[in-house]
Design a binder for these strands. Structure first.
Lengths: 160, 160
DNA sequence: TATACTTCGTTAGCAATGCTAAGCAATTAG
DNA sequence: CTAATTGCTTAGCATTGCTAACGAAGTATA
């Protein structure tokens, strides 16, 4: 259930030799902290009655729009056969629908249904609410630090 | 592969009514950013040749010391049968060993082996290195923001 | 045009991980 | 001493990863 989320947790840990030890220290702490935060947020996901892979794929469909199976697999960093089964599950549950591509008969077009969008938004609300709840005791200045940190993380990852 | 890591990604999303909208905005951004950061870090885990559940359990053993199966299951937020199988796998791979508890014959004592510690540390180094690499272009001031953010996240989650 | 590659998706079969239900053995309560 | 509780395992199911192998459709080339 923890997925890969807790491979490393400890403080007692010697950083590898580096010209920039501070960067490694920050990486270490950030890694650990984000693991703990997300592990906590995940508690809410039981309610959705859908497996993590399906929720995840559904979110890509909802926020990224309809797409072919291969694109979806790439977005989820998963092989095509795996995504094939996930999409089949979403279809069975009425959360996504499949159409054929007019230009290329090999492709399929996967789209989130209204029901799928609704379910995903609800799951999302639950998670965000829980995260917000854990931030309850922080001051505005501390919240500002977190907001800026989020921006920095997004930027850093996107530049990769 | 993404586990629950991408249930929500988008910017276009209306926050629920709240007395503290800023807190929800921060929660949303932080949630998204941490998902992306960890999804990125996870690329390194293929190398370890052990599933995520085993690596995760092993990390608890390495950093938390030997413990009973039930404790380990609780730490990993997993039911006992699941942990039973995970520990069996670790034992098969020579990464953990099982002893009987002298005081209570029902209990078992699971311990990480030297091989297990080595494997975990290597996986850990790979992940941290990758995270550090994505932080390459940040200034010292920006790194400091991330360090403080990590502290805040840890504190917030721990108070739960 | 015909043949051969390539690309896209599916099916089949394996392994890992989650669950509940059921069972066994040891401990604790009454 | 019996009965309830506790700790772990086994059995059986569903989900989600993978590779291998296939068929169908598009593309390139002789």
């Amino acid at each position: 259930m923890l997925a890969l989320l807790s491979v490393c947790d400890a403080k007692l840990w010697r950083m590898p030799r580096s010209k920039e030890p501070f960067r490694f220290e920050v990486a270490d702490r950030l890694h650990s902290a984000t693991i703990h935060l997300l592990r906590h947020a995940r508690q809410q996901d039981v309610v959705a009655r859908q497996g993590p892979a399906r929720l995840s794929a559904l979110s890509v469909l909802v926020f990224g729009g309809p797409m072919a199976l291969g694109q979806l697999a790439a977005a989820e960093q998963v092989k095509a056969p795996t995504m094939s089964r996930i999409v089949a599950g979403l279809k069975r549950s009425g959360l996504a629908r499949i159409e054929t591509d007019a230009k290329d008969a090999r492709r399929i077009r996967v789209t989130a249904t209204a029901k799928g969008e609704r379910l995903l938004q609800q799951a999302r609300v639950r998670r965000i609410r829980l995260v917000a709840k854990t931030l309850t005791n922080l001051s505005p200045a501390e919240l500002e630090i977190l907001r800026r940190a989020a921006e920095l993380m997004e930027r850093a990852v996107r530049q990769t």
